[in-house]
Write a protein that binds this DNA or RNA. Structure first.
Lengths: 188, 188, 188, 188
DNA sequence: CATGAATGAGCGTTCATTCAT
DNA sequence: GATGAATGAACGCTCATTCAT
């Protein structure tokens, strides 16, 4: 049963889990997720072997969605700064448009139910951004730092920026720019 | 007072909680914390009214410990860069020397059992660093950003740096310096 | 609906609760009730939301059972004395035949978990007896007393009588008659 | 240590227990009773071996107090009806003046922690009333009923009457009289 | 003798998972 | 495959009782 037929139901569960995690944290009962998804209690377990399995898949899917949003429409021929700026903007827009997904993701990222395998897979999902970053830092002050460190710094700055954009939406655009400028100063 | 409340025991519970949170997350059973502390099940509740109370106090204590480690021996007359560098080093040393505390803190920070009051108190604990930061950014590119944003960026960079220092201890010193340089570029 | 909620099981839990309350009072552990009912620990809570809920429902059911036993086969055209005598006899027979139910009921009646709503509903259950009483006392010495008082007196006499019938079963019939005669003297 | 020196403390605990039982039922924690009595947690157990012991002694004391209130100033030479009426009035006055004691007593009476021995001793306390009753019923319709039954009936009527006097204090006097008349009709 | 911290069994309730229907 | 009742281990917390101070 490599994947049960009804993908709609699977997606409904994923979406429900996202919502419920936001309100109830990682201890959200599977029964509540199932109910929110309009599905019976036990049906959840025909789509996901365990609760941890659901969480891992959700984590991966959210990360992938985020990455693909960030990379959408990347102007591959533009200058590097321009490209990164584009990614940054898309990324921030995603965060602001999907606050629930971001919050669920934050919770999941910190969970110890998420396996190293899932984390690695999620990481891969951002490979596109990684490559761009690689080219940018090549001549900058971080040229000798491990790539993972550079990515971590970018993620950290992105997270801080998102928090402020969500927290103070009136000045979201400014915060977005300030965040990007800070990142650029770090990298080049 | 017969058999006064024993500070050693309180500390043992705090330390045990730190350890158990690392291995079991926020769902760390109180019974396990008590056992780890060498104390009876119910004794935990003579020192802390509820599990949430324990977690809030632990959160505050860990944050305060971290802040005071960072600020210890601050060369108040040195140049600002020198001062921040000192804080940064001490901070990183604390993180590397107390990986369990840092991990527990990360979990606690994300818990919704931690009250706004505790968060505010914990924040105050870092006031010294905040002031330093304030003076540093006054003439830099972030002079118009909200202070909270600046702090968030610093925390984000610090966390990323710590992760790499812990992950790759051989080059800890280098990572520490790279992180600091990045921070400095962001601020000035 | 897969495996519909089983009325037998519900009844088994009710009966078990009755028995356990007799031996352990209102602090009867739910786990013991479940075991006595031959049901898992947690299953009790698929039939009753809380222990208090179980107790309220049990209270109501026992009272209703008692009332319907008392009113069964009421000779509605007979003289009032005859009717009351009939109710009294049936009532006493119920008490003697179901000593556990009576004891559980006594405990429940005194519990502060039983809500006013349940008490009111239980009261309604005895409305038939109330009406009869109403007609009887209309021309008697209690014609000006509040109806509630009259009912309370009847209940009090009934309880005393039941106690003696149970305590001294050999003379149960005589006690039953003595009790009734006392009641009749009070009322008319 | 047939009786610890400090009778005041013992009495304070008894009084506290009375109050706490009213508000919290028989599951009132001993710690709460101790606190209410202004006494340490563990001190309670130097005055009473166990919680059950406290409850038994309290039960006995309350019953004795009630009985002695009822018998106080008994006009031993008056007519029997007059004597009973006097007892009845005093009894009702006691109930109305000490609602907490009465309520605690009601709870205790139903508890299965109260031993048969305590119940017997409490019963003896009412011997004075019993003798009066004995003489009254000697020529009445209950002349052949067991004495215990007669006492039970009286208690039952008394309880019902008290409930109404407390519930509807405006007409307390009338309810008192109605109750007595009912009793008299039962007895003679 | 007073105190109150220490103890640990016990309780009501929850919940991931299984399985009869 | 879908359903939801059944299961029982686990949890946070309480409390009568003990005992070090």
């Amino acid at each position: 049963m490599a994947r049960p037929k009804d993908d709609d139901k699977r997606n409904a569960i994923m979406a429900a889990a996202t919502r419920v995690i936001v309100t109830r944290g990682l201890s959200a009962p599977t029964a509540m997720i199932a109910q929110e998804a309009g599905v019976a209690n036990g049906s959840l377990f025909t789509y996901f072997e365990t609760k941890a399995d659901l969480f891992n898949q959700l984590y991966l899917e959210l990360k992938a969605g985020m990455a693909s949003a960030a990379l959408e429409g990347l102007p591959a021929r533009a200058e590097l700064r321009e490209q990164l700026s584009h990614v940054w903007s898309k990324w921030m827009v995603w965060a602001v448009s999907h606050p629930e997904k971001r919050r669920a993701l934050a919770q999941l990222a910190v969970s110890d139910e998420i396996t190293p395998v899932s984390r690695a897979a999620a990481h891969k999902t951002m490979a596109g951004i990684g490559e761009l970053l690689e080219r940018i830092r090549a001549n900058g002050p971080l040229r000798n730092a491990p790539m993972g460190f550079v990515v971590a710094i970018m993620n950290a700055l992105a997270d801080a920026t998102m928090d402020f954009m969500v927290q103070d939406p009136t000045n979201a655009d400014r915060h977005c720019r300030v965040g990007f400028d800070a990142l650029w100063r770090v990298l080049s």
